[in-house]
Simulated assay, not measured.
Amino acid sequence: MNKQSQEFNEQRILSHGNQNETIEQTIERIKQRIIQTGDKPHVTVARQLELINQLADFPLGQFLLQNRGFNGYWTDYLIEHQYKRRFTGIDAEGRSLRELEKFILDKNPLPLATQQKHIHSVKVIQNYVQEGAVLASLPCGVMRDLLKLNFTGVDNFRLVGIDLDFQTLEQAKKLAVEYGLSEKVEFYQEDAWSLSFKDELTLLSSNGLNIYEPDDQKVTELYRQFFQTLIPGGILVTSFLTPPPNVDPNSEWDMNQINPEDMSLSKIIFFDILDIKFTAFRSSSTTKLQLQNVGFDKIEFIWDNARIFPIVVARKPK
């Protein structure tokens, strides 16, 4: 990584990034914060310290402790888990998954919603695989959402990956080689709020950015940037986190689909211990209004079972 890319990378990434401390230092810092806070009505200090030790026992847990969010690699790990590791209980290196790791990937309501959201998103995007299409992903992560599409019978197309994270872009380039699509892919290290594309993309897929930005005006501006990148008739496929019942009494969550014990443990891990960064919740009505305000029409929502992490499909008018 060149120094300029690394500095650019570290200044603006919203989803992850640590404080340049070792995992041991991170664990000690979090433990001290929890000890100083003391027991809470729903969880003791001892229980939280036990969970920290369990998180420190597997790579995903270590990453979450240090970064309080998912990068491109770990988002892909979470999504791809449902296709193989869920059934084998073993990762690509032959390591058996830990019990807490299985909980995060198999029972935690948010990761489950993320996995379902990915399935819905890929189905929508596949409909726009056609001659002359320019399909983009932002932040692209490792870009499997586009690379895994079926391009049979389609010869003339472009794939565009845009991300701030230089390391993630390098991982995406390697994955493009694995899928045999290197010649079709272009990668750009750009800030989503100042994109260089204008009236160029057939479809833009964007997941995992607005959930880190609490300012509604900034998210509306983000959608305006997306709007400008698309050709007339172009499609935006994005997603958002709806607020849970403890945040909004009018929550859209379907609590019949959520195990209360799983929800409780999830809250302890992600909020009490990790103090996660992705807490920018928005209702479907707010999201629809934001998209309409920048010019999108034909707005459609596709929901996961628990109505936590829906995708929204919107069109730039012709």
Results as ranks from 00 to 15, higher is better:
Leu100Ile: 12
Glu101Pro: 08
Lys102Gly: 12
Ile104Val: 08
Leu105Asn: 02
Leu105Val: 07
Asp106Leu: 00
Asn108His: 07
Pro109Lys: 09
Leu110Pro: 02
Pro111Gly: 08
Leu112Lys: 13
Ala113Thr: 07
Thr114Asn: 07
Thr114Pro: 01
Gln115Ile: 10
Gln116Val: 04
Lys117Cys: 05
Lys117Gly: 06
Ile119Met: 08
His120Met: 11
His120Pro: 02
Ser121Gln: 10
Val122His: 10
Lys123Leu: 04
Val124Glu: 14
Val124Asp: 06
Ile125Phe: 03
Asn127Val: 10
Tyr128His: 14
Gln130Arg: 15
Gly132Tyr: 01
Leu135Lys: 06
Leu135Pro: 10
Leu138Asn: 02
Leu138Gly: 04
Leu138Ser: 04
Pro139Ile: 12
Pro139His: 06
Pro139Gln: 10
Cys140Leu: 05
Cys140Asn: 05
Val142Ala: 02
Val142Ser: 05
Leu146Phe: 15
Leu146Ile: 05
Lys148Glu: 12
Leu149Tyr: 08
Asn150Met: 08
Phe151Ile: 14
Phe151Val: 12
Gly153Met: 11
Asp155Cys: 13
Asn156Gln: 13
Arg158Gln: 14
Leu159Ser: 06
Val160Ile: 15
Gly161Pro: 05
Gly161Ser: 11
Ile162Tyr: 03
Phe166Arg: 10
Gln167Asn: 13
Thr168Tyr: 02
Leu169Ser: 07
Leu169Thr: 08
Leu169Met: 13
Ala172Ile: 07
Lys174Val: 08
Leu175Gly: 03
Ala176Glu: 03
Val177Arg: 11
Leu181Ser: 01
Ser182Val: 08
Glu183Asn: 11
Glu183Pro: 02
Glu183Phe: 13
Lys184Met: 09
Val185Tyr: 06
Phe187Lys: 06
Phe187Met: 00
Tyr188Trp: 11
Tyr188Pro: 05
Gln189Ala: 12
Gln189Pro: 07
Glu190Gln: 15
Trp193Asp: 04
Trp193Tyr: 15
Trp193Ser: 01
Ser194Glu: 13
Leu195Ala: 03
Leu195Thr: 03
Leu195Trp: 07
Leu195Val: 06
Phe197Ala: 07
Lys198Cys: 10
Lys198Tyr: 14
Lys198Thr: 13
Lys198Asp: 13
Lys198Arg: 13
Glu200Cys: 01
Glu200Arg: 15
Leu201Lys: 06
Thr202Arg: 02
Thr202Met: 05
Thr202Lys: 02
Ser206Asp: 06
Ser206Ile: 00
Asn207Lys: 03
Gly208Cys: 04
Asn210Ser: 15
Ile211Ser: 09
Tyr212Ile: 00
Tyr212Glu: 12
Tyr212His: 14
Pro214Glu: 00
Asp215Gly: 11
Gln217Cys: 05
Gln217Ser: 14
Gln217Trp: 02
Gln217Arg: 08
Lys218Asp: 15
Val219Pro: 03
Glu221Asp: 11
Leu222Gly: 04
Leu222Cys: 10
Arg224Tyr: 12
Gln225Ser: 12
Gln228Ala: 12
Gln228Gly: 05
Thr229Val: 00
Leu230Ser: 03
Leu230Ala: 07
Ile231Gln: 14
Pro232Leu: 02
Ile235Cys: 03
Leu236Met: 10
Leu236Trp: 01
Thr238Tyr: 00
Thr238Phe: 01
Thr238Gln: 05
Phe240Leu: 15
Leu241Tyr: 00
Pro243Gly: 06
Pro243Met: 09
Pro243Ala: 03
Pro243Trp: 12
Pro244His: 14
Asn246Lys: 00
Asn246Tyr: 15
Asn246Gly: 00
Asn246Asp: 14
Asn246Met: 06
